[in-house]
Design a protein around this nucleic acid. Sequence first.
DNA 1: AAATCCCCCAACCGCAGACAT
DNA 2: CATGTCTGCGGTTGGGGGATT
Length: 577
Amino acid sequence: MIMYGGEIEKAGGPANHMSNGEGVVLKKGPWTAAEDEILYVYVRENGEGNWNAVQKNTGLARCGKSCRLRWANHLRPNLRKGSFTGDEERLIIQLHAQLGNKWARMAAQLPGRTDNEIKNYWNTRLKRLQRQGLPLYPPDIIPNHQLHPHPHHHQQNHHHHQQHQHQQMYFQPQSSQPNTPSSSPLPSPTAINANPSSSFTFHSTNASTAYLLHPLSPHTPTTPQTPSQVSSTPPPPPLSSPLSSPRNNQYPTLPLFTFPSSQINNNNNNTNFTFPRPPPLLQPPSSLLAKRYNNSNTPLNCINRVSTAPFSPVSRDSYTSFLTLPYSSPTAQTATYHNTNNNYSSFSLNPSPSSYPTTTSSPSFLHSQYTPNYSSTSFHNNPVYTMKQEFPSNQIPQIGVFNNVNNFTDNEKQKNTNLHRRSISCNLLEDVLEEAEALAGGDGDRPSKRRQLTASPPNHHNNNNNDNDNFFSVSFEQYDSSENIYSLQDLKPKEEESLQMNTMQDDIAKLLDWGSDSGEISNGQSSVLTDDNLVLDVHQLNSLFPADSTAAETRTNDEQNNNDKINCSWDNLHGVS
DNA sequence: AAATCCCCCAACCGCAGACAT
DNA sequence: CATGTCTGCGGTTGGGGGATT
């Protein structure tokens, strides 16, 4: 096997290397373009997971952890690079106030962002504010630990003595409960939401913030509700079937940050409001996706794994397929909402090429003008690279490149199409399972750490929008801004949904058998836990974060015809790709 | 112009949980 | 049940580069 070590000789001395225990010298330090290409191609072929096998199968002189990190932070599709937007920053602050240094969980709320990015951002911000003597949080955000001090509760990883120390050291101006350096100032997420039916309470010192989070309530009010009303009357449990999907129309999307303060009732300056735990996010039966591979050095191809499962879970083909298949007009898959200015914004429920930021730099091998030679010798000899070996920070694969790399046959495309059809119908079952677990009093509310939030993006690459596809067609075009009501159209009739339920009885039974199982899947995003007690509806986040505006700049005319609106792809949604 | 500071960010490390054997 | 492996998370480090002194 040819070992590719990048620029070992050039880049590093002995300190830049380590052994994998089998005499293979593994490289450390910055990744080169060639290494990226190897990793990218490998993941494309084999899916995520089993990272240690990358080195074994490709000769890439990188440890599994390094490969995983590189993929998650730089190579995976739909990464959103560049500076945080104001909305993102605001959300980060809010999330940090609620979650503390739970970067991965915060990243789950910021489509396309990685935990590392958020962590870096926060640490930088922390440092700056400390230096300037400014408070960490704006006056309208009170950190959760000040509202729900659990001085005796230690976080799960309390061994991290440094955790939150900065905040403890600094952010004390309003705290009546001193935090000792050894105790986490933040309530445990588990403690917050130990009860499946418990609600998450967010406290805000003004109505503005409350309003921002109002849409998080899945119980869309039929009449305008002031934050105080929301606070005083905890929403009742859903009257409809508890077997609900966050993707269905029960929980329409409202923009979180687009409401001008003038429209907000400012009478209540100290608002507490409560919203119930959101419906479970979609995830396949975890046992289907147990990321344990066979003992051979060759990891199971994800597609093969999928094909043997009763349902089609999500795998890497969830993105590769939509990346490689022709993009079709999202006619029935575009959800449009009015904001309060009566402007239209929209996002597409199906991933579209135009949803990819394209003006940020990308690994050169991902660009169409670069035709890599995939022979290992070319990797080794590296004769074709003329670009700087190390990428800049913003590296985003482009759709066109994937098309270049993926020469899927028509049969393969059809296979992917079918897989996604099944994925779509499977997602409802997964929700059913989740809810059933919760109703059964199991610990479905607290999925194991390894159970990752995943669902397949509805792959509308064919133009035959059959019922399965329409299942995810949600249009918010009847939002009445004057009453803050979202009416829904283009929805699948309840009866049809019920029929689907009935026809899936047997499968549900199977699923229930798997309920206690635990596993993990790869979602093509950075790690995302599913036991969020503050999981924002991904639709809401989609409304929050329209695709990188730069994407629109490079769209082709045809694409613009199809997507004359801002698009966010499913793959931008953490855990839903 | 050089030194220093600061910001940004990629990547590493250690640890713990989940799972397989 | 013990042990080993894999993975994910959070904390930390160190280099590059721009701004400032």
